[in-house]
């Protein structure tokens, strides 16, 4: 019994080491491939900067005319915008480069090669590459979060900061799962006619605090497309105004959507392996 357990744990450790080595080799190769195109960094920096400036300008319009947004002060709204920028950066770094290739894998049949590797296919498809050009967005977003929090006079404890990080991770997982499920439908529709782009434009709603939206949309962005958990909840956690129920809901939604993406992928693969030729 003990021998079995030891053997099992040894196997497990070897598997973890193999996945970790694979991930390092994936990203090493991705970095090398991206570095072939140096000018991208400059373009990406300009694009992120421009985007952020535009969002700041629109946000400032609301406050200049004294409207405000759903009871959020200008400074607190900056934190939400910062969270959005961080998340958008993560999407550009990891989600977009990986998940957008799934359609291509299905179209040109190279998914077969992925399925014949002794490594989990969802792991491969989700983390095979990364684009360093989204990193400036993450950094700019973090700067905005810190500036907004200081201006808003927030004094987060270490616990608040950790909780914020956790909520941001939950947000990423939710976004990833939705995106992955949409991309996986390409097994049936082959051309997922940029449905993922539609998803991304919906996410733009996360630039502003969720309470700024009319009640119907608020419900939609919480229950159907959980945008609320992506930016508003982490911002609330940092500003120390998050309620326990929202935090718990965010964690629960993250776990459930991750499980859903897993289930959906095995379901899609069952279809692929029985119908493709």
């Amino acid at each position: 019994m003990l021998g079995d357990a030891m053997f099992g744990s040894k196997m497990f450790r070897r598997t973890v080491v193999r996945y970790w080595r694979s991930l390092r080799s994936f990203w090493g190769a991705a970095l090398a491939a991206e570095m072939e195109y140096q000018i991208n960094l400059l373009i990406e920096l300009l694009a992120t900067g421009g985007n952020l400036a535009g969002s700041l300008f629109v946000l400032s319009l609301f406050y200049r005319s004294g409207h405000g947004l759903g009871g959020w002060s200008w400074e607190a709204a900056l934190v939400v915008l910062g969270m959005y920028t961080v998340l958008d950066g993560i999407a550009s770094t990891l989600l977009q480069p990986n998940l957008s290739t799934i359609v291509g894998h299905v179209q040109n049949g190279s998914l077969d090669y992925v399925l014949l590797k002794p490594i989990d296919s969802q792991f491969w498809l989700s983390l095979r590459t990364f684009s360093p050009w989204g990193l400036p967005g993450i950094v700019l977003g973090l700067v905005l979060v810190v500036v907004g929090a200081i201006l808003a006079g927030a004094t987060p404890s270490l616990q608040d900061v950790l909780l914020t990080g956790l909520m941001l991770i939950c947000g990423c997982l939710i976004l990833y799962s939705l995106w992955f499920i949409l991309a996986a439908t390409s097994i049936w529709f082959v051309k997922v006619w940029n449905a993922t782009e539609v998803l991304r434009s919906f996410l733009a709603a996360g630039r502003y605090p969720i309470s700024a939206y009319p009640i119907g949309l608020r419900l939609f962005f919480t229950v159907v497309l959980p945008v609320a958990f992506l930016t508003t909840v982490p911002a609330e956690a940092l500003l120390g105004r998050a309620s326990f129920s929202w935090l718990a809901a965010s964690g629960l939604v993250a776990i459930l959507s991750l499980l859903a993406s897993r289930w959906f992928w095995t379901f899609a693969l069952r279809f692929y392996t029985s119908a493709s030729s």
Binding site: R18, R21, G28, D112, Y113, K117
Partner: peptide
């Protein structure tokens, strides 16, 4: 499995980089 009309090497990189990825995946 080798398919003559489909490739698995990373297009922008030398074959050695793809081989490194394969080595890691196969442990």
């Amino acid at each position: 499995l080798v398919m003559g009309q489909k490739q698995q090497l990373i297009w922008d990189l030398p074959p050695l980089d793809s081989l490194r990825v394969h080595a890691a995946v196969y442990g």
